[in-house]
Simulated scan of single mutants.
Amino acid sequence: MDHEMNYGSDYKFIPATSIGSGVGMEVLPDVFCHTVQIVNICLVGIPKTGDFVLVDAGMPGSADEIISVTEERFGANSRPKAIILTHGHFDHVGAVIELVKHWDVPVYAHQMEMPFLTGQKSYPEPDPTVEGGLVAKMSPMFPNEPIDLGNNVQPLPSDGTVPYMQEFKWIHTPGHSPGHVSLFREKDRALIVGDAFVTVKQEYLYKVLTQEQEISGPPRYLTTDWEAAKESVMKLEALKPSVAITGHGLPMSGELLESSLGKLVNEFDQIAVPDYGKYVNKNTH
């Protein structure tokens, strides 16, 4: 812990919210989803045990909220075994440094996300010109510089296992970011998606505010590789998940999830890929 961790110089609180903000939901007996402003974190493990992990780390400035939600579910002074990151965008690592300092736990992410988490490389700039609404227009204010977790972050094991999440496997689902992963448990087909697809049109402020449920591709203003994004959605749909907890929007399950994911795969270019924007390759249409 001798390495001084830091956020990028553009790190700041982002004034965005939704009606879901502050609301938690037990999706499965050992999977709890909580919304921090506009993004979801997951606590995976049986309540009141010390055996659990945190998936993703919320918005900038949300550490106190995440700690309090964790203690409410797992008991006072409880701490996860680890923090697993689906990817390193600002709204998924917003409180990670404070949480690592408070809990003294390791962080795991895909090898290809490591440059963005060890201070080496910025993400591409968000694209405010992309087809979409106000959230897309706000995106230039979103932090995209790398954070530096130093030796507190380690690559996920290359064999697909997830530390401290015995029954889950990580699946590489790039497109939204190079090292994006989703987490899947075969026995009940539970899927923690990250942002490979979401259940709210994340570009539109009205839909984000109201959390109107509608399956969509990854948030457009930060997605840079649409061909990879499409392949990732196809890979996840082939798993036939029974329930999906996405990075944005409400969890989706059962027939609605099955039909929505099928439609997203079949109509990906129409539903997910924006008609214009600087990361849109016209060849994908």
Results as ranks from 00 to 15, higher is better:
99 L>M: 10
235 K>W: 00
185 R>I: 02
48 K>G: 03
219 P>D: 14
140 P>L: 10
226 W>G: 08
20 G>E: 14
92 H>W: 03
14 I>H: 14
96 V>G: 03
251 P>Y: 06
95 A>V: 07
210 T>H: 11
225 D>Q: 11
129 T>H: 10
267 E>W: 11
14 I>C: 14
54 L>S: 02
71 E>H: 15
126 P>F: 05
206 Y>R: 15
45 G>F: 04
125 E>P: 05
108 Y>Q: 05
88 G>M: 05
247 G>N: 09
148 D>C: 10
85 L>C: 05
180 H>M: 12
219 P>Q: 10
22 G>K: 09
194 G>A: 06
82 A>D: 01
274 P>G: 09
275 D>P: 10
171 I>N: 08
143 P>Y: 08
153 V>G: 03
85 L>H: 01
167 E>D: 15
96 V>S: 02
67 I>W: 00
128 P>S: 12
184 F>Q: 01
41 I>P: 00
108 Y>D: 05
112 M>F: 14
213 Q>Y: 05
24 G>D: 09
160 G>W: 12
83 I>K: 00
1 M>I: 11
281 N>A: 07
54 L>K: 01
225 D>C: 08
12 K>V: 06
3 H>L: 08
228 A>Y: 02
55 V>D: 04
184 F>D: 01
248 H>K: 09
144 N>R: 10
195 D>M: 04
236 L>E: 06
167 E>W: 01
43 L>H: 00
78 S>R: 00
64 D>F: 07
272 A>C: 08
221 Y>V: 03
8 G>M: 11
239 L>A: 07
73 R>A: 06
179 G>Q: 04
175 G>Q: 02
258 E>M: 07
224 T>M: 07
118 T>M: 14
11 Y>G: 02
171 I>S: 08
220 R>M: 08
92 H>Y: 07
182 S>G: 04
28 L>V: 09
29 P>R: 08
33 C>K: 02
53 V>S: 02
4 E>S: 14
26 E>T: 14
205 L>S: 11
283 N>A: 12
96 V>K: 03
252 M>F: 02
142 F>C: 07
44 V>Y: 00
260 S>R: 04
60 P>E: 06
264 L>I: 09
221 Y>D: 05
26 E>P: 03
229 A>L: 09
3 H>N: 09
93 V>C: 11
132 G>T: 13
269 D>K: 15
279 Y>S: 07
227 E>M: 10
194 G>L: 06
165 M>R: 05
46 I>D: 06
134 L>I: 13
